[in-house]
């Protein structure tokens, strides 16, 4: 106990260096051999994945390779900012982040998922050698570290899996709900509002927003079931044209939908006064 940690560490390392010098094996060619075999396996796996991906994808009338195989299509349709019914999906190693967004979905908490948790994880990782200063290296003698590792792996696995299997609101299915929305909200026969409701279902609004129990609640987008109780159609048209003007920097502008479509959407939102308030 008399000697300090730094001194003990340096002694340990001096012993290690001495041992390796006297009894170690040469890096070249002994360790290099293992490394080379492993590297060949890695390249083989990459080539195999590429081949499975290429040959397992099929053709569709729209083009070659668009029909996904087990490793997905060669590419999806060309990027089109005007179709908002496409469900955003990151690469698999961002699924955990993707799912965190669904947990912290309220506007005040989104930054916890997007910035807060990743930053904390990064700081914890970088700081690891500084807060775990014990000399002990055997796993069975480091119970706290091992439990933390298992919990980290489990939570990453669960978040990745949940992110991968998360159900998305698909425009083609949501459109079928328009008549029931019209009935619940009481805008049956209002053609403009019904047209707006269809656009609402198809344009991917529910990828972020929720409406009468449908939708994703991503990125802290609010529930719109009763949004018409407080504002009129003209307000919604302006809001959709430039959300940033209302202090909303997360939502993009929908001005590309055109004045006619925006008017229909505005009419629909204004007609959505909620089922409880009548």
């Amino acid at each position: 106990m008399a000697r300090d940690l730094g001194e003990l560490n340096r002694e340990d390392f001096a012993r290690y260096k001495d041992d390796v010098k006297k009894e170690g094996k040469p890096f070249f060619p002994r360790a290099i051999f293992h490394d080379t075999v492993m590297s060949l396996v890695v390249v083989g796996i990459i080539v195999a994945l590429a081949a499975i991906w290429y040959y397992d994808a099929g053709d569709t009338p729209e083009g070659e390779g668009l029909e996904p195989g087990i490793l997905g299509p060669w590419y999806t349709e060309p990027a089109d900012p005007a179709t908002t019914n496409f469900v955003p999906r990151p690469d698999w190693y961002f699924y955990f982040l993707f799912y965190l967004l669904r947990i912290f979905k309220w506007p005040e908490t989104v930054f916890i998922a997007t910035v807060g948790i990743p930053t904390i994880c990064l700081i914890l990782l970088i700081g690891l050698p500084f807060y775990d200063r014990r000399r002990e290296r055997r796993p069975l003698h480091r119970p706290v570290a091992m439990v933390a590792a298992v919990l980290t792996i489990l939570s990453m696995a669960v978040l990745t899996w949940k992110g991968a299997t998360a159900k998305e609101a698909l425009g083609s299915e949501l459109v079928l709900l328009v008549p029931s929305w019209a009935e619940e909200q009481g805008f049956v026969g209002n053609e403009e509002a019904e047209k707006g409701a269809k656009l609402f279902a198809e344009s991917g609004c529910l990828n972020c927003h929720t409406y009468l129990g449908q939708g994703a609640g991503n990125l802290g987008a609010p529930d719109l079931s009763e949004v018409g109780a407080t504002n009129d159609a003209a307000y919604f048209v302006q809001y959709l044209t430039n959300p940033a003007a209302y202090g909303n920097t997360v939502m993009g502008s929908y001005s590309y939908l055109g004045a006619e479509n925006l008017a229909a959407l505005g009419e629909f939102l204004a007609a959505s006064k909620g089922t409880s308030g009548g």
Partner: peptide, 11 residues
């Protein structure tokens, strides 16, 4: 620059 790429990046 396909749909997957575009919308994942927008998000």
């Amino acid at each position: 620059w396909d749909q997957t790429a575009y919308w994942a990046t927008v998000v």
